[in-house]
């Protein structure tokens, strides 16, 4: 299991767990980030900034704190 913030660029995970609070979790779920979804990390902003991911065919940016709360299994 690996969290999104430390995942390498251009690697993909299958989400297994989202540890966030109710609000953030709802929002992420509405955007398709639920267990079982494939998420690809595209890049992260300089100086440990937010991460950009590809999910359900579109690009999303999420804060690093939130990215740390998204766990998944690496897809090889």
């Amino acid at each position: 299991m690996i969290t999104l913030d430390i995942l390498q660029n251009n690697k993909e995970i299958i989400v297994r767990m989202v540890h966030a609070g109710w609000r953030a979790k709802t929002r992420l779920a509405n955007l398709g980030i639920v267990p079982g979804t494939k998420v690809k990390k595209l890049r992260s902003a300089p100086l440990f900034g937010p991460v950009q991911i590809k999910v359900k065919g579109s690009d999303l940016v999420i804060g690093r704190g939130l990215a740390r709360k998204i766990l998944g299994e690496l897809v090889s």
Partner: peptide
């Protein structure tokens, strides 16, 4: 209230 983390679409 709590501070919200960034979640946005990038077009």
């Amino acid at each position: 209230g709590e501070s919200t983390e960034l979640i946005m679409e990038m077009h």
